[in-house]
């Protein structure tokens, strides 16, 4: 059976501000979907709603994984069900070593029925695997002893997210600008790593503004978000077009969505001033 992540008519608000206005998207296991769209169109919001961030309220619509209601699950249950998101802005957890954090996470995701207090993956086995994956990602072994995202550079944070993707082996992963804030070499390394770990092995939803990541992970589908809606869907060539020519054609073709997008951006600017 191929796994399916299905999003139907999804509406999401932050506070009482509607952000997503009816998103439909079906991702089959093994497929790669590119999610593009101008700033503030709602791309991260879609990812965070899939992951279950408590600040993003689903006001209507559904998300299912193999027919099971994902909206019923807490973020931890979603992770254990095989959903993952590499965050645009990962959080620092001072004092918690990457290795300890990853050992807990990996154990829980691999053994979704584990009860609290039960044994973790044996230390030796875990260390060996972690070391191999880190070598593969060309990460310094010292990284495992550092505190989670604490004092990491932007690039280090993104690589730490990729390492988590590699360890947790989810069924579906949202990668939110995992290639931004990196220099050209690092973008190439990240793109290759993701291709290696996830391309055709998971269902991928890749949010990106650059072309490198999609060159290494050619998408079967490209979706364009504007004003909280997926206004257009195409193949790989749509991503190429947007990379080359930007969003002018899209903005003109969907004036209502464009107006909503501008309204949200204007509100953001107002809040920033207030």
């Amino acid at each position: 059976m191929t796994h399916v992540l299905k999003i139907e008519d999804l509406h999401v608000s932050v506070g009482d501000k509607p952000i997503l206005r009816g998103v439909n998207l079906t991702i089959n296991h093994g497929e790669t979907h590119a999610l593009m769209g101008p700033n503030g169109s709602g791309k991260s919001t879609l990812g965070l709603a899939i992951m279950g961030h408590p600040g993003y309220e689903v006001t209507s619509g559904s998300i299912t994984l193999d027919g099971k209601d994902v909206l019923e699950m807490g973020p931890d249950e979603r992770a254990r069900a095989g959903i993952f998101m590499a965050f645009q802005r990962p959080m620092a957890i001072p004092g918690v070593k990457m290795a300890d954090f990853l050992r807990h996470a990996t154990t829980n995701v691999r053994r979704p029925d584990r009860k609290e207090g039960e044994e973790l993956i044996p230390m030796r086995e875990f260390r060996k695997e972690l070391r191999e994956k880190m070598e593969h990602l060309r990460m310094d072994s010292e990284f495992a002893r550092r505190y989670v995202n604490d004092g990491f550079s932007g690039g280090e944070m993104k690589r730490a997210e990729i390492l988590q993707l590699a360890m947790l082996q989810p069924k579906f992963a949202v990668l939110d600008e995992t290639d931004s804030g990196l220099d050209a070499d690092a973008v190439r390394l990240a793109s290759e790593s993701i291709a290696d770990i996830g391309h055709q092995k998971m269902g991928l939803l890749i949010i990106t503004h650059h072309d490198k990541l999609l060159e290494h992970n050619p998408p079967e589908f490209t979706h364009v978000m504007l004003g909280g809606r997926l206004v257009e869907t195409g193949g790989k060539e749509l991503a190429v077009e947007l990379h080359q020519h930007g969003y002018d054609r899209i903005r003109k073709a969907y004036p209502d969505a464009e107006a909503l997008n501008q309204k949200l951006l204007a509100e953001d600017a107002e809040e920033a001033l207030a």
Partner: peptide
């Protein structure tokens, strides 16, 4: 913080494991 908590939950930790981990990190 809610964001710290969400980050750990999104990696499969339970609420209790997550808060214990944050506390242990605090005294580390």
């Amino acid at each position: 913080g809610e964001e710290q908590m969400f980050y750990l939950l999104s990696r499969g930790l339970s609420e209790q494991e997550a808060s214990t981990m944050i506390v242990n990190g605090f005294i580390e």
